Computed example of a mutant assay.
Amino acid sequence: MQTTTYPVTGMTCSHCVDSVTTEISAIPGVTDVAVDLAGGTVTVVSEAPVDRETVRAAVDEAGYELGDAS
């Protein structure tokens, strides 16, 4: 299993959490998504590493922006 945490900007409510979770969960191989609304992060658990640009596209589809890794 691979666990990666990404910063996401623009999330402000539970609807944001639901949207981001739905879009990232649709990525093949993703087994779990945990959104930390207060911290502005999304933790993705997957069977194998997921390309950052694939996660970026899913977050963008949900209406938010993947931040740069710190």
Score class of each variant (00 low, 15 high):
Thr54Lys: 09
Ala57Leu: 02
Asp32Leu: 10
Asp68Met: 11
Ser70Pro: 14
Thr12Met: 14
Glu53Asp: 13
Tyr6Lys: 01
Val20Ile: 12
Val50Phe: 03
Cys16Ser: 06
Pro28His: 02
Ala38Cys: 04
Ser14Thr: 08
Met1Leu: 13
Asp36Lys: 06
Glu47His: 01
Thr54Gln: 07
Met11Lys: 11
Ala26Asn: 10
Ala38Ser: 15
Val59Gln: 12
Pro49Gly: 03
Leu66Gln: 11
Glu61Pro: 00
Pro7Asp: 03
Thr12Arg: 13
Ala38Thr: 10
Met11Arg: 09
Thr31Arg: 11
Thr54Gly: 02
Ser19Arg: 15
Thr54Leu: 05
Val55Ser: 05
Glu23Asn: 07
Ser19Met: 15
Thr9Gln: 14
Ala38Gln: 13
Arg56Gln: 11
Ser70Gln: 10
Ile27Met: 05
Gly40Val: 04
Val20Trp: 05
Thr41Lys: 13
Ala58Pro: 02
Ala58Val: 05
Ala69Trp: 12
Val55Phe: 04
Gly67Ile: 08
Thr54Ile: 08
Pro7Ala: 03
Ala34Tyr: 01
Ala48Pro: 00
Asp60Ile: 00
Asp18Trp: 15
Val55Tyr: 04
Val35Gly: 03
Ile27Phe: 05
Asp60Gly: 07
Val30Met: 08
Ile27Pro: 00
Thr31Asp: 12
Glu47Ile: 06
Asp36Phe: 09
Val35Ser: 03
Ala48Asp: 11
Asp60Trp: 03
Gly40Ala: 08
Thr9Glu: 13
Gly39Tyr: 08
Gly10Lys: 09
Val17Thr: 03
Thr41Met: 05
Gly10Ser: 09
Thr3Met: 07
Ala58Phe: 03
Pro49Asn: 04
Ser25Pro: 02
Met1Tyr: 08
Asp32Glu: 15
Val50Tyr: 03
Val20Ser: 05
His15Gln: 10
Pro49Ala: 12
Ile24Ser: 01
Asp32Ile: 06
Ala69Glu: 14
Val33His: 01
Asp51Ala: 09
Gly29Lys: 12
Val33Ala: 00
Thr22Ser: 15
Thr5Ala: 15
Glu65Val: 14
Gln2Cys: 07
Val33Met: 04
Thr21Asn: 06
